[in-house]
Design a binder for these strands. Sequence first.
DNA 1: CTCACCTTATGGAACGGTCCACACCATGAG
DNA 2: CTCATGGTGTGGACCGTTCCATAAGGTGAG
Lengths: 338, 338
Amino acid sequence: MRPPTIRDVAERAGVSKSLVSLVLRGSDQVRPEKRQAVLAAVEELGYRPNAAARSLSERRTRTVGVLLNDMRNPWFVELLDGLGSRLHDSGLHMLLADGRLNRRLGEDLTHTFTELRVDGLIAVGTLPPSPALRTAAGQIPTVVAGAREPVLPRMDIVAGDDEHGARLATEHLIGLGHQRVAHIAGQGVVGELRRRGFEAVMREHGLADTAIVEQGDLTEEGGYRAMVRLLGAAGRPTAVFAFNDIAGVGALSAAEELGLQVPRDLSLVGYDNTYLSRLRHLWLTTVDNASHDVGRRAAQCLLDRITAPDRPSETVLVTPALKARGTTAPPVTSGRRP
Amino acid sequence: MRPPTIRDVAERAGVSKSLVSLVLRGSDQVRPEKRQAVLAAVEELGYRPNAAARSLSERRTRTVGVLLNDMRNPWFVELLDGLGSRLHDSGLHMLLADGRLNRRLGEDLTHTFTELRVDGLIAVGTLPPSPALRTAAGQIPTVVAGAREPVLPRMDIVAGDDEHGARLATEHLIGLGHQRVAHIAGQGVVGELRRRGFEAVMREHGLADTAIVEQGDLTEEGGYRAMVRLLGAAGRPTAVFAFNDIAGVGALSAAEELGLQVPRDLSLVGYDNTYLSRLRHLWLTTVDNASHDVGRRAAQCLLDRITAPDRPSETVLVTPALKARGTTAPPVTSGRRP
DNA sequence: CTCACCTTATGGAACGGTCCACACCATGAG
DNA sequence: CTCATGGTGTGGACCGTTCCATAAGGTGAG
């Protein structure tokens, strides 16, 4: 029992397969009664077009591949939402693949996607450098969403304005009255940008001397350890701006384990506005990087590049916004400051 | 500039397209020097087989579709990991799709998957009832993973043993000395099973009278509200077993807002062992439902059903394990018990 | 009446693979 | 010398669509 084909439908409706094809693709060159007959036959047989045959013939798949780095860190969910809705409007499907999952298996997802002949590629977040992605991007329209690297010709970048976001977070803390502010830094270009935003604002407020940067990473553990180091050193900060929410949560744990009350004794800001930060038990002040918007614009960008593959590369930055929640407050005025 | 086809490779290597096909599919009926010539041509041209053409001809896609309900609740990540690794061993790819995302767009993913002619379907977690899934399951080998419904002919179920897991959680609490134990219940068959496990153990320990069940849902908000109700009523429990980690985190917030210290004044157990529960700031005692194993077995089950579509339905239950962390402790012995 | 033309329908050639049936060429047995 | 044998290689049908070139039939103008 093989699934019915367009020929089965044609036979049942008493027309040629070409006419069935016309009807299914919405041509207006068909007499209404024939159209009805075809649609009825489709219904009766439960016909579904074969995507492989269609894309073989049309020489496109109406599908874009989405490369994800790690599903465990949920910051990208909103982004995917925006991405999907815009793509859907243009009749494109989204194929998700978690790179970490497959890389462990020694499989390169870009290979899979090129074999599938996806019409486009979206790299979500910073991916480990891969020559295969480079090659793929040379052949398939590609957009990086929510990250700033790699920068390659014929490839666009859509991301939140990390430097601006970091500035917002830092200004928020300074605005509350904090002077000794620390930053738990992340890696890569994004880490660099957020650090730069932090340092710039501190400098502008004449606080360059009391600005502390502690290297962390993108994990809870990294945030925890960085916070332990920060609080163990002399001149401990009264406020900390963490690279992202996960690191922020780690930092939160460290602070509380060392007997500090947040936000009374220490203010803390994260980044990404993940649902983690929205949990009322954490209620983390954070920076919303407008991921939904980033996703939508990345989709738009990809659509544009699909229609004009050779146009110059573009970098779109979306403006983030501060999301003040429960982990930031003015510092307690202690007399022991120098 | 179209991507090279098997004919281009053949021409370059000076052989027929059939021979190229043989080489690429690893036949041993080919003379080594010809094989080398073909492989060299493949390399030089950067040839990648066209998946659409291949699956059209082979009449299978080597791809299974994975239906996900909601990426925001991360319990399934481990499951996907197990699923992916087992499928990969059999040369199958995984196509992920978030149902919630697409349902909002009025698109039915099962349609997409049937058009793609995926070789199999995995429904992860409890999905909203859909006649389309029913139809799809009738035509495509389908396995439900990490849920207990829907039950349809020619469809297998692989899940954690929820009743047993609930028993573990409840016994853990009773073993610590708790007598007034409450359960924040979930919905659906899984919710039912966990509640049943809870009630059975309470009964077995002669605690049926002090067993409280409060209806929640699968969200943080639901857990929060259920906990508020529990703590507001008379005979407040000293321990609570929540349907899942997310609800547990909500419950945790409620308890702390009402001035209770966890675990001193109240013990709390979640379910799923998500990374949420592993955050040191929450450090939630929970039940590990061996998702990785569930994933692997679901994959195995699907492979079996693909080879024998008509064999009787099977239900595989994987044994969960308690993960004791920081939110459970013996109750403080207060004199005011009746 | 003839012819151009428009609308509607059709056959058949792609699309890029797989795989079957068959051809070719040594080789060695009868 | 002939003929089965077996290892290698090839042509071509087929998978299920799309779409182009063209046919059939009706209509109105000249």
